[in-house]
Amino acid sequence: MLKSYIARRLLNSMLLLVAISMLSFLFLEIAPGRFLDEMRLDPRVSPDTIYAMRQQRGMNDPLPVRYGRWAGGALRGDFGLSLAYGVPVLNLALPRMRNTLLLTITALVLAWVICLPCGVWTAARPRSLAARLSGPFTSLLLSVPELLAAGILLLLALRTGYFPAGGMFSPGGRPAGTIRAVADASRHMLIPVLILTLAVVPLLLRHVRAALESASGAPFVQAARGLGIPERRLWLRHILRVAANPLISLMGLSVAGLISSSLLVDVLLGWPGLGPLFLDAVAVRDTPVVISVLMLSALFLVAGNLAADLLLYACDPRIRTE
């Protein structure tokens, strides 16, 4: 049962990724403006040279051949050579992906750690001050663009000088010793993680509260109250469990928002993540890098949704009987 469920989900995700790869490949390959176009303007470079360079990079073959070659390579973990740097794309993207994931996963965990207790608290005590303030507070945060939050925090960090703003390590590069490096990196992570957390918390908090409130209206809650189950136990053991279903799917979805926001944060704060790499690749039309980063970002999302599905299977008995 579990096996067929996982197999179906996996197959779905795979097909989605294949479709995305085909679409993005097609779209970017038929785009006007090629990587070597600028060289044509240079009188010192002969057309033959450009032809040879195109030949060397395999840019003269027909489209299906190029896609087949790219997809075949991608399956073996070879995403081709970057046109700009001439090194395997994966060598460029993997360390940066690790850095981006470091930010997004930390922010995701932090956001959930903040939102679950706050959501339970405000749903359980709808008349408390915190609950009444949380509505306007979340809608204020929701409409603040990330660019503004990022800008203000960045300026604050620069003005006060308490936190490093920009980069992953202090000037002078990665400090010697693992502990020192981790300490330095985590100090640098503070501002970007804060920005990302602020970007997801309002939506998450709202959904947690709404899910809990709707679950608490169920007849079983009244029955449990009548049986004398204490409030704390009722909320944490019973209502939270029923409300978990939409929240778990939301977790998969919130990965999407986080990945988009992290692009902005990476660029603004000089965090060596996927953002700056992608932006540069877009600017110079380094197609293999653009496609690969796009695929990687889709992979995060699909993986997030898959994880949510599996978690849902583990938590919700209703799905198992389907």
């Binding site: 989605l16 995305i20 993005s24 779209f27 970017l28 038929i30 785009a31 999407a256 928002g257 990945i259 988009s260 926001s261 692009l263 902005l264 992608f278 932006l279 690749a281 877009v282 039309r285 653009v290 980063v293 796009l294 970002s297 889709a298 995060f300 999302l301 699909v302």
Partner: peptide, 14 residues
């Protein structure tokens, strides 16, 4: 299935 900012920038790149 694509993060919107990545999608937007890739479309712009094309």
């Amino acid at each position: 299935a694509l993060p919107w900012l990545y999608l937007l920038l890739a479309a712009r790149a094309a």
